[in-house]
Amino acid sequence: MAEHATAQETLFALREQIARLEGKSLPALAAAEQADSAADPEGRKAKDNQPRLPFGITQMDTALEGGLPLDGITEIRSLLMGDAGAASGFALSLASYLKARQPNEVPVLWIGDVVSTQEAGIPYSVGLKQFGLSSRDVLYASPRKLDDALWLAETAVASRALVAVILEIRGNPRHFGLTESRRLGLRAKAAGRPLFLLRHGGEEEASSASFRFLVEPAPAAPRHLPNGSVLGGSIGHPVFRLTLEKSRNPAPLSLLLEWNPYERQFSLGKDTGEAFSFRNPPAHPGARLPASADRQDRAPALGTVMAFERAS
């Protein structure tokens, strides 16, 4: 019996170790922690060794288990290259938010992608200043190859010399798969520095990012006049339409997030109350008819394939 208990204990310890390696919270562990925290709320904070950056928005913070992780990869994805403004805006606003809470002189590193720079432009320092990041807060890197960019990101994260690293990539390059992202994730974990992976026009892909946001553009908030009224037809603070695609929380979260560059603070967009689930509707809804070449195509098979016919 005693032997059994020891084995259990070893097993539990190993599980705990694995959970820690993977950055997950074990159900049993979490339950124990909750019991702990009920008894001693201060102790929980001390125990929680994962640095988090709370947004100050309850919905967001619950979904992110306390806030943005500061020791790992957070992926920010856009559907199209045309949404680069919204996606890079969200990444840079996160960097600015983080920078505002760390009062040292350490800059943020922006690792640009060559094609994305041609397609969507270079981050503009005057605009960045209005966005909450002064020109000395940002270092721009423009590596020619993806390998160089990955090396740069790894070195930057491991050096702990930067507040945050933003790695911009386009699409789903073959040389940046799960192995590479896992490696970057481990580096970030060891160094305790955040890495924002900004993926323009990419598919959902397995990676070691603990959270993945889908960013879509949303109409900006209107400008407010000093007396509190709204100036009609004006374009004010930027608003991002965020969808939390990957998280440990099963329910997907969708909300409008407004970034206030002056106060360097996020807030919920005004019309978040109505639950929206629509995205841009496809231009041509309905099933596509196959294009006919020199004669009529045969009718497409009905239904979905349940099983293939026997080969022999």
Binding site: V106, P107, S125, S135, R136, V138, L139, Y140, A141, S142, P143, D148, W151, L152, T155, A156, S159, A161, L162
Partner: peptide
């Protein structure tokens, strides 16, 4: 930070890492 800038500049060239 200086060390990081030096390493990157030594490896990828001084033009790779820039400030505005």
């Amino acid at each position: 930070l200086a060390d990081f800038v030096d390493r990157v500049s030594a490896r990828l060239g001084a033009d790779c890492l820039q400030v505005a």
